[in-house]
Design a protein around this nucleic acid. Structure first.
Length: 750
DNA sequence: TTCTGCTGTCATGGC
DNA sequence: CTGCCATGACAGCAG
């Protein structure tokens, strides 16, 4: 059965790891508690029968933060709950599951199964018990468990029971189990928020690494449950040794020793870690006692030492929360799972628990300490919770909790949470904006594509970019294997047409079908491949009347086949061309036929494109009648006007395209500016947050002549221009905002 | 048949 | 004044 469990558990773990890798959070807690009794049975073992009640108990404990029903702290508890709910409502942060999380789960399950785990609890219990007794005189007998074992022991049992380990003391679990779910989620949210906040505040990654190292150390340190059974004394001695060392946790980032004030947060976390480790060891007896003694000597002593040194017996020590050393502060005694779950608040928490802090601004802080105190009584439940949380919490949470000591600055947690939520909103806005921007870009791209399909084609021919148009046209002309001779004509307006015209023989008799070529140029823009298919020109339906040398030539030499026939020879669509030529002739004939009718001796092309001087010479050469001259002038006028109209239309298109481009650029700039704006807003908020935290910190440390803290409701800090900070009554501040109060002035360096 | 786009043409104005 | 160009407006044609 054990093997089956092990394999099954391993499979689940692997599956969970995969899920975590792809970002899916696996709420094992839920499944274990509610959904899969068989699974739980398999993983946790037959002892899970106990666990149900234990889970209930645990849940209760979590909800109540381990507060005894009769405890006066229930008020605080509800307050905390309310605040937490509010925070949750502000922003629900989904905690991503990670590998670490999965492993923790696995370990727990294994631990439960393994008989050693059962024995293990006793060991831990002893350690914790001693501490617990000392620290938590408040603990009710019921909480401690019917066994009468020390609280620590009880806690351990509870934790184990939560895991499915045998927990004969049902009483203990009552406090803790039920609340686990809710608290765990809340804690997760808080932890995640705080963790992010730490990151935002610049907490070094090494901090987390440090915590991780501690975790690992703890894992390694954790002797096998079996051994722990027998070696409870060893652990205690180990811890004692740690205490003797008096090593304080060191901020991984700053290298400074971390204040020991941290309440039970760390302890809780550590407890969960230890339990997890212990369970893991139980499952996978990789950890040798010797290896654990090495690890303990190194990492463990650091945290616990400080604790013991101050308070003498701190749950955290018992729990093995090395990171959080609360020894010096009386708060140390208060250990709450919540706080334990709260990751990166380490530095702030001292402030939080600092009684000097003004109640107004630090309402959350006050609540938290209270919670911790209340929890102190229900350490057992806390531990149970811790197990769940620690096990199921995402790795970063754990790391963050471990890192609490190392985190540099932690402002008011709730304000931080609020700030974070706001920041998240901003980030969401940013994302939305970015998305909008991307969408806008996409739409613009679509527009551009559309314009390319339509306008841009023309744009290439636009007068504004005559070069391009010309180039394209020239390319088209070149593709048509004709050398541009239009220069001879003295190109006018768009070279496109003129160049195209050059395709024809100089006389232009052979089909100076300019419009068609212009169209060709456009088509070439649309699809360059069409350059090779010049014959398509023949298929151009539009008839462009007068400059058509074709028609003129045809008119002049009716007997000759239509000049376009040259191209048509290559063309496969002769019949089509024939029809088209008919149409061309038909349409072109208007001025052409007139010219024919009037016996005009030269082509319309010359009439239109020749420079004025040459044109006049041409006219002078031939003795033309007045009607002929009038017709020629009309032809020239219309021809030029036609080109002018084409140029004009091209310019229009080009203008439109330019405007579109300008709109695109403006939109892009707008999006960029908005993004920058949001970034500035975010940075400003962060600065405000920091300033607020500093304000609170400074204010909380201020004392009057009698050493009493200033009530924040009556006094406030004012910043002077020279950088000094003044504390002055609020009434004065409000009434005499502009006047510099000469009241109490205390320079605060900051 | 209607709509739309393209083209040619005319009228006008400016240079 | 003439020539050229630009442009709006209109009409015709074709898809």
């Amino acid at each position: 059965m054990l093997y089956l469990k092990k394999y099954f558990t391993e499979g689940l773990i692997q599956f969970t790891i995969l899920l975590s890798l792809i970002g899916v959070r696996v709420d094992v807690d839920t499944y274990l508690n509610n959904q899969l009794p068989p699974l739980r049975e398999i993983i946790l073992g037959p002892s899970s029968a106990y666990t149900q009640t234990q889970f209930h108990n645990l849940r209760n404990t979590l909800d109540g933060y381990g507060i005894h029903p009769k405890s006066v702290d229930l008020d605080h508890f509800f307050t905390t709950r309310r605040l937490l709910n509010q925070v949750r409502q502000l922003d629900r942060l989904s905690v991503p599951s990670t590998e670490l999380n999965t492993w923790l789960v696995h370990r727990d399950s294994e631990t439960v199964v393994s008989p050693s785990s059962q024995s293990g609890p006793s060991i831990t219990l002893e350690n914790g018990a001693g501490l617990e007794d000392v620290n938590n005189p408040d603990a009710t007998p019921a909480m401690r468990g019917g066994s009468g074992a020390p609280e620590s022991t009880y806690n351990l049992n509870a934790a184990d029971s939560s895991l499915g380990a045998v927990a004969p003391e049902g009483n203990q679990e009552q406090g803790g189990r039920d609340g686990n779910d809710d608290l765990t989620k809340e804690d997760i949210d808080l932890i995640d928020i705080l963790w992010r906040q730490d990151i935002d505040l610049g907490a070094g990654r090494e901090v987390f690494n440090y915590s991780n190292r501690q975790k690992e150390n703890e894992e390694e340190q954790k002797p096998n449950p079996h051994e722990s059974k027998d070696g409870n004394e060893e652990q205690e001695s180990w811890r004692n040794g740690v205490n003797l060392q008096g090593v304080q946790p060191v901020d991984g980032e700053t290298g400074e020793s971390i204040p020991e004030q941290l309440p039970g947060i760390g302890s809780q976390t550590s407890l969960s870690l230890q339990e997890c480790l212990r369970l893991l060891e139980a499952t996978f007896p990789f950890g040798e006692e010797s290896e654990a003694m090495e690890v303990n000597n190194t990492s463990v002593p650091t945290n616990s030492s400080s604790v013991n040194g101050t308070t003498g017996t701190v749950e955290s020590n018992t729990v093995g929360n090395f990171e959080l050393s609360t020894g010096s502060t009386p708060v140390n005694q208060d250990v709450s799972l919540h706080q334990a779950s709260l990751p990166s608040c380490s530095q702030d928490f001292p402030q939080i628990f600092n009684p000097q802090l003004d109640s107004i601004s630090i309402t959350p802080r006050t609540t938290l300490p209270r919670l911790s105190s209340s929890n102190s009584s229900n350490i057992n439940s806390t531990f149970g919770t811790t197990n769940l949380t620690g096990i199921f919490l995402p790795p970063h949470i754990n790391s963050s909790s471990n890192n609490i000591t190392s985190t540099p600055i932690l402002p008011d947690p709730f304000s931080t949470l609020l700030e974070e939520s706001m920041l998240d909103e901003i980030s969401l806005l940013d994302l939305a904006m970015e998305e909008g921007f991307s969408q806008a870009q996409a739409s613009q791209l679509e527009d551009e594509l559309d314009s390319d399909s339509g306008l841009s084609l023309d744009s290439s021919h636009s007068p504004a970019s005559p070069s391009s148009s010309e180039t394209s046209c020239s390319s088209a002309a070149s593709s048509s294997s004709t050398s541009a001779t239009f220069s001879e004509e003295g190109a006018v307006g768009y070279s496109t047409d003129s160049e195209v015209t050059t395709v024809e023989p100089e006389e232009g008799a052979v089909g100076g079908y300019q419009p068609g070529y212009s169209k060709l140029c456009r088509m070439s823009y649309q699809d360059p491949s069409q350059f090779h298919s010049l014959p398509h020109l023949d298929s151009i339906s539009h008839n462009h009347t007068y400059n058509l040398p074709l028609s003129s030539a045809f008119a002049e030499h009716p007997e000759l086949p239509i000049p376009t026939g040259k191209k048509n020879v290559r063309d496969k669509h002769n019949s089509k061309l024939q029809t088209h030529q008919d149409l061309l002739d038909k349409h072109a004939s208007r001025d052409e036929r007139r010219a024919r009718a009037m016996k005009i001796p030269f082509s319309n092309e010359k009439i239109i494109n020749l420079p004025v001087e040459e044109f006049n010479e041409l006219l002078a050469k031939h003795h033309l009648s007045e009607p002929q001259l009038a017709l020629i002038r009309d032809i020239r006028r219309r021809g030029k006007n036609k080109m002018a109209a084409q140029n004009c239309r091209k310019r229009k298109l080009d203008t439109i395209i330019n405007l579109e481009q300008g709109v695109h650029d403006l939109r892009r700039d707008k999006a960029r500016l908005l993004k920058e704006k949001m970034e500035f807003i975010r940075s400003i908020r962060q600065m405000k947050q920091k300033v607020q935290s500093l304000y609170q910190e400074v204010f909380s440390q201020l004392r009057d002549e009698e050493g009493r803290p200033y009530p924040p409701s009556e006094y406030s800090l004012q910043y002077s221009a020279d950088g000094s900070v003044l504390i002055m009554p609020r009434c004065v501040t409000t009434a005499e905002q502009n006047r510099k109060p000469e009241k109490k002035q205390k320079d605060k360096k900051k």
